[in-house]
Amino acid sequence: MITARYWREMPQRYRYEAGKCVKCGYVAFPPRLICPVCQAREFQTVTLANTGKIETFTVIRVAPSGFEDEVPYAMAVIKLDDGVQVTAQVVDVDLDEIKIGDRVRVEFRRISQDGEAGVIFYGYKFVPA
């Protein structure tokens, strides 16, 4: 991953910014240029909800490149209190205790690193609320 790409994604990863369709209210995360619901093209910047609940989850035991040292780790689809769903890791939790419906809260964490001497990627993970 190159630096420009990481820089470009900072508003979403660091500030958790989404685009809200001014016509129908659909919240696009990440932002889009056209609303998939009503086709409007005007959005206002909003910040996503900090809390939500686990819709479904898994524990990754065979990792892709860059995450080999992290296994086992939990990943979930989280439905935020504003209705937006995101995929993220759930951390600081006993892996045997996670359940669908658990309340979680967002935190800013280190995600991975680009190669041995590369840039460190930060972003959102979730912890028990």
Partner: peptide, 15 residues
């Protein structure tokens, strides 16, 4: 928005 966070294909189908 999925791969960046460390999800795999078995992980997505597991969910």
């Amino acid at each position: 928005y999925e791969g960046f966070h460390g999800v795999t294909f078995p992980g997505l189908y597991a969910m």
